[in-house]
Computed example of a mutant assay.
Amino acid sequence: MRQGYHQERRHRIASAVAVLLLHAGLGIALVTALGFTPVATPEDSLRTFDLPAPAPPSPPPLRPAPRPERKSGAAAPPNRHARPVELVAPPVPAPLPPLLAAAPIAGPGADAAAGAAPLPGPGTGAGGVGQGTGSGASGSGTGSGGGSPARLLRGAIRDSDYPRAARRGRVEGSVTVRFTVDPAGRATGCAVTRSSGSAELDATTCRLIEARYRYAPARDAAGRPVVELRGWRQDWWLEPRR
């Protein structure tokens, strides 16, 4: 019995091996008959694709420029003194009185004589005292009246008044101005008649004159204060650098 069992088992194994060999032979025959050889195409092995463009590099952060180191040095040399020169302008002449129209016909009065009246008046005859520019006894015009000119009481332009910007830029010059001394003795209406070439120096001169200068006003022959026109020249200059 045991021997028959072993023979039957060997027969089954031999049959299985034969079947496997048959299937392998059929597979080889099929592949050979079809002539199929798997070939890898270049498209499968290498495919190209686009990469996104790299972003531009960000600029480096800005750094503030280093501040120059300030060094202390010697004091600046002293400035030269400004030398003001006062110019006296002639007083403004008073306007002439209006002319009187002559009568169209002779007067019907009974006076025995006609001519100059013994009292002062605005007429055109040879009166005693008038306001014109002729050779009367006195007047406020440009003739030889008996008045007195204005007299400076106080006011000056000092070295410390030199404008800072003009000092730094070494700007110099002489400016001539004209202003009015009113009956109260104040300097008003300052105007430049000859510029120094610097608008800052010109403006500073007029501003200081109107703010600081005070006068004893001019007076006419009767002692009454009157308006007077005056001039002033201011020299702005600095000591040379050493």
Rank of each mutant, 00 (worst) to 15 (best):
Phe49Ile: 09
Leu152His: 03
Asn79His: 05
Arg167His: 06
Ala65Met: 08
Ala156Asp: 15
Arg80Ser: 13
Arg47Leu: 07
Ala222Met: 10
Gly121Ser: 14
Tyr215Pro: 00
Ala117His: 11
Pro78Ile: 03
Pro225Glu: 10
Arg151Gly: 09
Pro90Leu: 15
Gly35Ala: 06
Asp182Ile: 00
Ala137Ile: 13
Ser144Arg: 09
Ala55Ile: 07
Gly169Trp: 05
Val175Pro: 00
Gly197Glu: 05
Phe49Gln: 14
Arg9Gln: 12
Ser196Gln: 01
Gly25Asp: 11
Arg63Lys: 12
Tyr162Ala: 06
Ala55Pro: 09
Asp50Ala: 14
Asp161Gln: 07
Gly173Ser: 06
Thr32Ser: 15
Gly27Met: 12
Phe179Val: 00
Glu239Asn: 09
Pro240Trp: 01
Ser72Arg: 13
Leu201Phe: 01
Gln234Ala: 02
Pro97Phe: 07
Asp202Met: 01
Gly141Lys: 03
Thr37Phe: 07
Arg67Gln: 15
Ser138Leu: 08
Asp44Cys: 04
Asp235Lys: 04
Gly136Asn: 01
Ile105Arg: 12
Ser144Ile: 12
Pro52Trp: 01
Gly27Arg: 08
Ser148Phe: 03
Pro120Leu: 02
Ala126Thr: 12
Pro183Cys: 01
Ile105Met: 10
Ser135Val: 11
Gly231Lys: 03
Gln131Asn: 15
Pro93Tyr: 01
Glu239Pro: 01
Val227Pro: 01
Pro66Cys: 05
Leu153Asn: 09
Pro42Lys: 03
Arg154Asp: 06
Val88His: 11
Leu20Gln: 10
Ala117Lys: 12
Thr193Asn: 10
Pro104Asn: 02
Arg214Glu: 09
Arg164Leu: 15
Gly155Ala: 05
Arg194Glu: 12
Val177Pro: 00
Pro122Thr: 06
Ser135Gln: 13
Ala150His: 00
Tyr162Arg: 04
Pro118Asp: 14
Leu119Val: 14
Ser138Cys: 13
Arg219Pro: 00
Thr142Ile: 11
Ala18Thr: 12
Ala211Leu: 06
Ala117Pro: 07
Val39Leu: 10
Gly185Asp: 10
Ile157Pro: 00
Ala14Arg: 14
Gly141His: 04
Asp202Gly: 01
Val226Gln: 09
Gly115Phe: 02
Ala33Leu: 10
Ala94Glu: 13
Leu62Pro: 08
Val171Ser: 11
Gly155Pro: 03
Phe179Lys: 01
Pro120Ile: 02
Gly169Thr: 11
Arg230Glu: 03
Pro163Tyr: 00
Ser174Thr: 15
Leu30Asp: 11
Ser198Arg: 08
Leu22Ala: 13
Arg214Thr: 05
Gln7His: 08
Arg207Tyr: 02
Val39Tyr: 07
Leu22Asp: 12
Thr180Lys: 03
Asp111Phe: 06
Gln234Asp: 05
Gly189Glu: 14
Thr204Asn: 02
Asp44Tyr: 09
Ala94Met: 10
Ala33Ile: 13
Tyr5Ile: 13
Ala187Thr: 06
Thr133Gln: 15
Arg214Val: 04
Gly128Lys: 04
Ser45His: 03
Val17Asn: 11
Ala114Gly: 11
Gly35Gln: 00
Thr133Ile: 09
Arg178Pro: 00
Val171Ile: 08
